[in-house]
Design a protein around this nucleic acid. Structure first.
Length: 479
RNA sequence: GGUCUCGUAGUAUAACGGUUAGUACAACGGGUUUUCAUCCCGUCAAUGCGAGUUCGACUCUCGCCGAGAUCACCA
């Protein structure tokens, strides 16, 4: 049987780190089993609907490379994929339940329900609406909420992550199926849609575990087969023991894209947060994840989000792309991350800069601060130079003569390439008798005025003879 | 409060009932002729507590403690 998974977000805002795993795992499973993944937009709550949220969701999935086989944009045999456009379908299924005597229109005003709830709280008994089920119920018509008429009994089921589950009748209640505005509740809509769309594996956050018995009752009443149920533990905020949410500053997934995190790293990190394949592998490509993934090895306790590890992983990916696919491949990912002053420079030059700086990057946006002196003249800051912990040991006249010696040496250099440059620097070292830390720091800062930079000979090679000498001369004059 | 779930270093995790409890991130220290990184080496650090079963328990059972989820005309 073909496996069908789905990701069914509600368009209430961006997708963040805390909830994107419920898109990643269904995707991996569908691809591994050669099945389908459906994207369905659960927009039955008009009040919480956010304009543009659907596009944000699609954008996020596309960036991560999680393509869907049915859903918005691509369409499919079970269209529409927006719940707000499927009202009639829910009403049809609702009428089946009414006909079977398993649903009733409930005209009870909310205030009355609130009163029942209060009564129960005061008498310290659990509040179950089925104990207050109205005697005479009207014909169902728009404007009146429709409730499920539950049959209290025990349920057993297997959750692929949480294991064997069982509950008693006390968790079953007359849940609302259709709201007074005519839209279905999540509880009803997702069951109907999953059935209509042929979903075989339902993956969602653990928060739905408690309501699962009510869903099981609905499957039964509707005469539907149970899909496989898979509860995904929450991702926890860095501090405290709460699940990571927008209130704890959970950043949107695409915000990381704008910060220069690679989608490979993001997918890799999130997939491995709360899941592992039992080996000691840390870095996975998407294809490797698809191959290695298994629902059984999803952790059943919450995992804490650790941005430091994500950034470490991003560094790993940055280097991996450079090493395996080449400088050009990595360069193609850097659009928009260079300092503005780099706009006028040629691609070849930027690739050269990237080639000597890439292993210092944690994110692509580090390019902005780390490469400025390759594209604009640094401001000469003598304090910064003199206060360097190595240069501090030199007297002013020493600095002056060292700079002069360097200028002469470099001016006479025949070929301006990394190796001869290093040879020249080594000669300078022995001629002046200075420690590398002192001499090289001096030259390095004089040509960059940056807190750190790539190897000196490489930096000079990329900068070129004219610019290197001009900067050394400028500093020598300023001393 | 009812119901359900979870509990290995700071974090993410590994370990057919049998290893010196492994790995990675972080932290700390060191090495690779400058800095910041990369890379390499090393150090620190864990089975929540208490019983029971067993020759032997991270692993099975029970109790306790701790944490979380859920009890909406939200999803």
């Amino acid at each position: 049987m073909e496996i069908v998974t789905r990701f069914a977000p509600s368009p209430t805002g961006y997708i963040h780190i805390g909830n994107v795993r419920s898109a990643i795992y269904p995707y991996l499973l569908a691809r591994q089993k050669d099945g389908k993944m459906i994207l369905r937009i659960e927009d039955t709550d008009r009040a919480r609907y956010v304009e543009g949220a659907t596009e944000l969701i699609e954008d996020t999935l596309e960036w991560l490379g999680l393509n869907w086989d049915e859903g918005p944009i691509v369409g499919g045999p079970n269209a529409p994929y927006f719940q707000s456009e499927r009202k009639e379908i829910y009403h049809e299924w609702a009428r089946k339940l009414i006909a079977a005597g398993r649903a009733y229109a409930d005209p009870t005003p909310p205030e009355k329900i609130e009163e029942y709830r209060k009564q129960c709280n005061e008498s310290k008994t659990p509040f179950l609406y089925r104990n207050f089920r109205p005697k005479d119920t009207p014909e169902w018509e728009p404007g009146i909420p429709l409730r499920f008429k539950t049959e209290p009994k025990s349920y057993e089921w297997h959750d692929e992550v949480m294991g064997d589950m069982h509950t008693g009748p006390e968790v079953l209640d007359d849940i609302i199926l259709i709201k007074k505005d005519g839209y279905p509740t999540y509880n009803f809509a997702h069951i109907v849609d999953d059935a209509e769309m042929g979903v075989t594996h339902v993956m969602r956050g653990v928060e739905y575990l408690s309501s699962t018995p009510n869903y099981l009752a609905l499957y039964e009443a509707l005469n539907l087969p149970r899909p496989k149920l898979i509860s995904l533990p929450h991702i926890l905020a860095p501090q405290g023991n709460k699940k990571l949410g927008k209130r704890d500053g959970a950043k949107s997934v695409t915000e990381y894209r704008d910060d220069g995190v690679l989608p490979e790293a993001m997918l890799n990190y999130l997939a491995c947060l709360g899941w592992n394949d039992g080996t000691e592998q840390e870095i996975y490509t998407k294809d490797e994840l698809i191959k290695a993934f298994s629902v059984e090895r999803i952790q059943n306790s919450g995992a804490r989000y650790d941005e430091t590890k994500l950034l470490w992983m991003n560094g790993q990916w940055l280097r991996r792309i450079f090493d395996e696919q080449g400088a050009k491949a990595l360069y193609l990912r850097t659009t928009g991350f260079w300092p503005e002053t780099a706009d006028n420079f040629k691609e070849d030059y930027k690739i050269k800069v990237l080639s000597i700086i890439y292993d210092r990057l944690k994110t692509l946006s580090d390019l902005r601060s780390m490469t400025s002196y390759f594209f604009a003249e640094p401001t000469i800051d003598l304090d910064f130079l003199v206060n360097n912990k190595f240069i501090k040991k030199l007297s002013e006249s020493e600095i002056e003569s060292l700079l002069k010696a360097t200028i002469i040496k470099l001016t006479n250099l025949k070929t301006w390439e990394a190796e001869p440059l290093q040879d020249a620097l080594n000669e300078l070292l022995s001629e002046t008798g200075k420690k590398p830390a002192e001499l090289f720091s001096l030259i390095r800062i004089a040509i960059s005025f940056a807190p750190f930079s790539p190897a000196l000979n490489l930096t000079m090679e990329v900068l070129g003879r004219d610019i290197t000498l001009a900067r050394l001369n400028a500093v020598a004059r300023a001393i």
